[in-house]
Design a protein around this nucleic acid. Structure first.
Length: 353
DNA sequence: AAGCCGGGGCC
DNA sequence: GGCCCAGGCTT
């Protein structure tokens, strides 16, 4: 039999029931695809249900403000997805008269929608004949056809999308695309693929050549940066001091305790005291007391290793701070990175209420 | 083409 | 500790 027929037969028997699988509504499909970018289905599911309920239409999403969207996204990571989600909803209202686009070319105009997501929405909603090429597809095809080309380069996209289109043959694009991704997620997995009971075993080139575990090939990525963050917790009658992270870098538009980054964590309290007193955000107020709360925490990102230290700081004089500092009683309505959330949960849970 | 952008689960 | 996940944007 052919690849597509065997694949789709496998899919009919083994597919999962997922909340976004029984709709042709491009808005819901798009919402699920953004949430699932670089995210496992099990991790994204609850977020999808939450967003679908809070924003049942693209117009409801467009009417929300960014902070609300970020707050709901909190904990899922890659926050540019949430910022672009909101921007794309605005685009649908202003550039597409409130009608969610369903064709590949127009979908690509939406913020946060690249080739993968455009192909997914166009094929799932309207059966447009465009192949999806995600991590699963790279893996399945590189093994099936024994392709040594690294999958994480611009050049490889062309190779794999053309291969996928050929393998699709005359099958239904929505079904084929769903099937190949589900097959990669459940059967042709990165480690321990189920080759012994694979419906494609007699046609899989890598299996015949015993090269399954060598594929797909990936170019090595850069090593991680080490960073040292010192968070200043100052809490008094006027509230808890927090700041919004400015334009560039990680966690954009999320909130945190005022933070001072240092080259390492070798400094003493006296040196940190000086850093705080000469920092514009604290208006030259003199520090009367510094206490470290808890121990150093390690937080890993895809390409940064963050060592975080939290200090409780008291000032001698009345604490009027720089305008960039927000005072609040509770962090509840502010989007915060997981690093901060974890610290608060363990050391000061009352800040979350 | 390379770097940047999270967080969680698995081995 | 390293790898991967229903990727996309910026430089």
């Amino acid at each position: 039999m052919s690849f597509s027929v065997d694949l789709i037969n496998w899919y009919q028997k083994n597919k999962r029931e997922l909340p976004w699988r029984n709709t042709k509504n491009p808005y819901y499909i798009w919402l699920s695809e953004i949430i699932l970018q670089q995210t496992r289905v099990e991790q994204g599911k609850s977020y999808y249900l939450k967003f679908e309920k809070e924003f049942p239409t693209v117009r409801a999403l467009a009417n929300a403000d960014e902070q609300k969207v970020l707050n709901m996204w909190q904990g899922l990571g890659y926050y540019s997805r949430a910022r672009n989600l909101k921007k794309a909803a605005d685009q649908v209202i202003t550039e597409f008269n409130g009608v969610f686009p369903t064709d590949y070319k127009n979908l690509l105009k939406l913020k946060g929608v690249g080739k993968y997501t455009a192909a997914a929405v166009a094929s799932f909603s309207k059966n447009e004949r465009v192949p999806v090429v995600d991590g699963n597809v790279y893996r399945v095809i590189s093994r099936y056809l024994n392709i040594d080309e690294p999958i994480n380069t611009p050049k490889s996209y062309k190779i794999f999308s053309e291969a996928a289109l050929e393998l699709m043959e005359n099958s239904r694009p929505d079904e084929f695309n769903q099937a190949i991704m589900e097959f990669g997620a459940l059967h042709c997995t990165p480690t321990n693929p189920k080759c012994d009971k694979c419906p494609l075993s007699d046609q899989c080139t890598a299996l015949v050549l015993n090269r399954v575990k060598d594929l797909p090939v990936k170019k090595k990525k850069t090593k991680v940066r080490e960073r040292f963050f010192n968070f200043i917790i100052t809490n008094n009658a006027s509230g808890l001091a927090i700041e919004k992270r400015d334009q560039k870098g990680i966690w954009q538009n999320l909130y945190q305790f005022p933070m001072i980054e240092t080259k390492n964590h070798k400094h003493q309290f006296s040196e940190l005291k000086k850093l705080i007193e000469t920092d514009d955000r604290f208006q030259n107020h003199k520090v009367s007391k510094v206490t470290q709360i808890g121990s150093d925490r390690k937080h890993l990102l895809s390409h940064q290793r963050i060592w975080a230290r939290f200090y409780e700081v008291e000032f001698e004089s009345e604490t009027v701070y720089h305008e960039s500092i927000v005072r609040t009683k509770s962090l509840e309505s502010y989007p915060i990175p997981r690093l901060i959330e974890r610290f608060v949960e363990e050391e000061a849970p009352h800040y979350l209420k």
